[in-house]
Design a protein around this nucleic acid. Structure first.
Lengths: 123, 123
DNA sequence: TCCATGTTTCAAGTATTATCGAAATATAAA
DNA sequence: TTTATATTTCGATAATACTTGAAACATGGA
């Protein structure tokens, strides 16, 4: 994942409403939710909802599929995976800042590295 | 980490210049870099640099310490860790979207869960 | 004290983003 | 075909964010 695309994804999630939308879609699972259900759950005006769904779609974090009269949106887990990979590869020190939950379970020594590991870029 | 704070951190990183600043500080290690060195490396006008450093500081992703006439900024790894934890806990499906590099090394079965795990919220 | 250097703050201009009512489009049911 | 429902697009407005030169502030050296 290139830096620009990472920044765009981060910016997309860096808005409370869009973050809430994304979380709702993640919770909903691969099936996703009708656009209207998202708007209802979060109390959003249709135009506002559409604006944010379009934004999330544009950066690839969610996908919409038409199903009869409805449009179901669902989270793209692999896009989120790439984003997390970008953060761990480029924005962590070794893997020092991986979630504790992961590190505690992970024998990989990079999980608790020396204080001053150096560059680990991916792009 | 609450949702609002997560959104603020994501938004802070969701800007190419700030993301570049943060990456540079991560690469620099715990010592960090003088503000001026960051500006020079990225070709930023002093006021612009200061604006973005202040933004990243405000959300807690970096810290500045005065050292003689200079101010050294360094990445706050634990803040990034919390952010990644938030994303894996709230924006992934189980841990399905953790980076492959992590999952490949990790015996935790949640790394490759069934397709349709349900809600796993943290807040 | 005066000067040089590093950094921030201020102020102003520009650009981008968010919101939402109203109109348009699409699909399906009557 | 008409009507109803779901969603998007349009248009206008308001709010926020970004950039930068210039001025202010802070620190250390002469």
């Amino acid at each position: 994942m290139e830096t620009l695309s990472a920044a765009e994804s981060l910016a997309a999630l860096g808005h409370e409403t869009r973050l809430a939308i994304f979380r709702a879609l993640v919770q909903a699972g691969p099936e996703g939710l009708k656009a209207g259900a998202v708007g209802e759950a979060l109390g959003l005006a249709p135009a506002t909802l559409s604006f944010h769904l379009a934004h999330l779609s544009r950066v690839g974090l969610i996908r919409g599929r038409q199903e009869s009269r409805f449009i179901f949106y669902s989270a793209d887990y692999s896009a989120m995976g790439e984003l997390i990979a970008f953060l761990t590869d480029n924005c962590c020190q070794g893997k020092a800042c991986l979630p504790n939950a992961v590190c505690a379970e992970n024998p990989d020594p990079r999980c608790n590295p020396e204080p001053a590991c150096e560059g680990n870029s991916r792009d």
